[in-house]
Amino acid sequence: METPADLDARIIKLISQVVPVKPEQIKRGDRLREDLGMDSVCSMELLSMLAEELDLDVGVEDAAGIRTVADTIALAARFLRAKAAA
């Protein structure tokens, strides 16, 4: 079972593949657009990569409200819980 810290690290690593920022420089409170320089297309690609990596059925609508690294982690955690409960 993945711990919250493992999930954080996994998602931060994914983000570092989308933007030219090293994982150790990415913080939970960072905003995807303002702090990490993602545009809306880039942030959708991130969530798509996340859905593929974790095999989650994230919808475009679910992804729309994501603004920060912490939002991304929370979204992944919510879908992982739903998947485990199914």
């Binding site: 690609e45 969530l47 798509s48 859905a51 593929e52 994230v58």
Partner: peptide
């Protein structure tokens, strides 16, 4: 390789 496939996955 890198594109948004959320709609296709659904």
């Amino acid at each position: 390789p890198r594109t948004n496939v959320l709609a296709l996955r659904q």
